[in-house]
């Protein structure tokens, strides 16, 4: 499978603090890659480096767009990266609270059109795909957490990305809601998207990921399919713990 994003030797420092050290991995086309690791491992930092919120200290991020054109997106501004086809959400959900659900999504849809009516049509499509049609006129600040996270994903989808990057999109949700999001992610994959997912909730991502990348203290310590990772001693030592190790063997 061809890669959509190639991350090579990415290093990010804050003063003397090494947040990401020499991280390299690929994100394959139409795959779901999950990025996991203990708190402070550098997952969100890596995320921010790839999506243009930080300028990496060193390293290279390469992207292949729909037409297969290779582009160096290291350190480019976020909005430029978004226009190329990579959209992200936020760990602390940032719905546009003064707008309705529909308007939130329309704001994303405007990336590919200048006309309000077209944006509205595009938004309608996204509302259907994400099951938000019934809630479309509700103001952002009147939504529940689960709804907000869904709206954020929907808004990102409206930008018609090639790659969708989700930063802890399941945090704070209950069991049912998590299941819903898992199904949504699988749906999106079925629709052709490539996804990079940062998560803590193992039960949610293990079953749906094609590949898992593990970070610890800024370094990549493992990369591979879920089964391999679950059995990887390094990973277990750093992060998973005995309990889950046993669990995953069963599923």
């Amino acid at each position: 499978m061809k890669s959509v994003i190639e991350i090579r030797n990415l290093t990010m420092k804050f003063g003397e603090l090494m947040a990401n050290e020499d991280v390299s991995f690929d994100i394959e086309n139409n795959g779901i890659v999950s990025l996991i690791g203990p708190n402070g491992a550098g997952k969100t930092t890596l995320f921010n480096c790839v999506t243009g919120f930080y300028k990496p200290f060193s390293g290279k991020v390469t992207y292949w767009d729909e037409a297969g054109v290779e582009q160096d997106i290291t350190g480019r501004p976020t909005h430029e990266i978004c226009r190329k086809g990579i959209t992200r959400n936020f760990q602390i959900v940032k719905t546009l609270s003064e707008m309705t659900v529909e308007q939130n999504i329309m704001t994303g849809a405007f990336l590919h059109t200048n006309k309000t009516s077209e944006a509205r049509d595009l938004a309608e499509g996204v509302l259907r795909r994400t099951g938000l049609l019934a809630r479309k006129d509700i103001l952002g600040r009147n939504l529940t957490i689960a709804e907000r996270k869904r709206v954020e994903i929907a808004r990102a989808l409206a930008t018609e990305p090639r790659v969708l990057m989700l930063d802890e999109c399941m945090a704070g949700l209950n069991q049912t809601e998590i299941k819903d999001v898992m199904n949504l992610i699988l749906d999106l994959k079925a629709q052709g998207l490539t996804l990079l997912v940062v998560e803590h909730i193992m039960e949610a991502i293990m079953p749906i990921s094609d590949k898992i990348v593990v970070l610890d203290s800024g370094k990549k310590i493992a990369e591979g399919p879920p089964q391999e990772i679950a059995n990887n001693d390094e990973v277990i030592k750093a992060y998973l713990g005995e309990k889950y190790h046993a669990k995953s063997k069963k599923s």
Binding site: G52, T78, H79, C82, T87, M99, G108, F110, T116
Partner: peptide, 26 residues
């Protein structure tokens, strides 16, 4: 207010980050 510009402005007003993440150059 009801045009692309209006939507974009309101997004920028609430959060530069959100705006950037959906392709807006604030």
């Amino acid at each position: 207010e009801n045009s692309k510009m209006g939507f974009y402005w309101k997004a920028i007003r609430e959060s530069h980050e959100v705006a950037e993440s959906i392709g807006i150059n604030p």
